[in-house]
Nucleic acid binder design. Structure first.
Length: 290
DNA sequence: GACCAGGCGCACC
DNA sequence: GGTGCGCATGGT
């Protein structure tokens, strides 16, 4: 089935795609402005292709999915609306930042949406895998993980189930060049999910502080991972991960500082960006893309 | 070859 | 409750 979905502009789909392009697991075409995504509707893996057919000011999307008896257009549109921030008032956010020190960035990247990870469990695994590594190698490791243990469905790569990962041995991840510790974090966290000791879908209901409190109790998940999961997994709007080396470097560059900022300085500066600190984070990250 | 990457836990104090 | 260190490997 296929249909068209219209949203309120501005919306810079192309800028979002440029960012997603570094993920080797995604199928996308920046010129054609198409993206094929693995998503879950209830317990059904669904591959959906989204193509931008409108403009920056009047955005419109052509959505295509193979017919599925258990999946409705409405459910998919709702999911995509969440993932792509289609209902986020990007013009109002740009106006909000107009009176802040980041005004210049929000003019430069006006209309650029924050795009979430399309799989909740996958988002947590990806974030653990990405800890401390440079982006290129982090994506390589994640790609090996998904292509070794996940599955391909109608051209999109889906993460394996937590149950499957729970039954892996660390040695199987070491072969992919995971560190021993990272292998344990991924497997042990998956085991908690598989055994019902951690329910990611229940976290959707909780406020940020309780999600962080829950997640950081788990060995291998610290503040950076919890905050990134809140942003990329749950799509929360007001996170500013001060441990993030990318944000530290971006602030150093933006403010023309000699060295990376202290955490206290980052907290002080970010106060005026509430309640949209996720967008401040995104646009700072954008500002150091090469 | 050193040093840093979209951190974290653990061993020490 | 703070500080130092190891982790695997790629990029600079």
């Amino acid at each position: 089935m296929e249909w068209t979905h219209v949203i309120t502009g501005p919306y810079n789909f192309n800028q979002a795609l440029k960012r997603l392009k570094i993920d080797p697991l995604l199928t996308l075409n920046v010129v054609e402005e198409t993206l094929t995504l693995p998503i879950w509707i209830e317990d059904n893996p669904v591959t959906v292709t989204v193509k931008q057919v409108g403009t920056f000011e009047e955005p419109m999307f052509h959505i295509q999915v193979t017919d599925h008896e258990k999946v409705t257009k409405e459910a998919i549109t709702e999911k995509l609306t969440h993932l792509f921030h289609w209902d986020t008032p990007l013009a109002a956010i740009a106006d909000f930042f107009e009176k802040t020190e980041l005004a210049h960035l929000f003019q430069q990247y006006r209309g650029t949406p924050f795009v979430c990870d399309s799989q909740l469990y996958g988002s947590l695994m990806k974030t653990i895998i990405h800890q401390q590594l440079n982006m290129a190698f982090a994506y390589t490791l994640t790609e090996r993980f998904v292509k070794s243990f996940g599955f391909q469905h109608e051209g999109a790569w889906f993460y394996p189930s937590p149950e499957k990962v729970a039954n892996l041995e660390p040695a199987q991840l070491r072969e992919l060049q995971f560190s021993q510790r990272k292998a344990e974090y991924v497997i042990d966290t998956s085991r908690m999910i598989a055994e019902g000791d951690l329910n990611l879908n229940e976290l959707v209901q909780l406020p940020n502080e309780q999600v962080i409190e829950t997640l950081v109790k788990i060995r291998g998940i610290g503040p950076w991972t919890a905050e990134n999961f809140l942003m990329f997994g749950l799509g929360r709007m007001d996170l500013f991960p001060i441990q993030d080396i990318g944000i530290q470097n971006a602030m150093k560059k933006f403010y023309d500082w000699e060295a990376k900022p202290l955490h206290a300085v980052m907290l002080e500066k970010s106060k005026e960006w509430k309640p949209y600190r996720t967008y401040a984070s995104l646009y700072l990250w954008e500002s150091i893309e090469t």
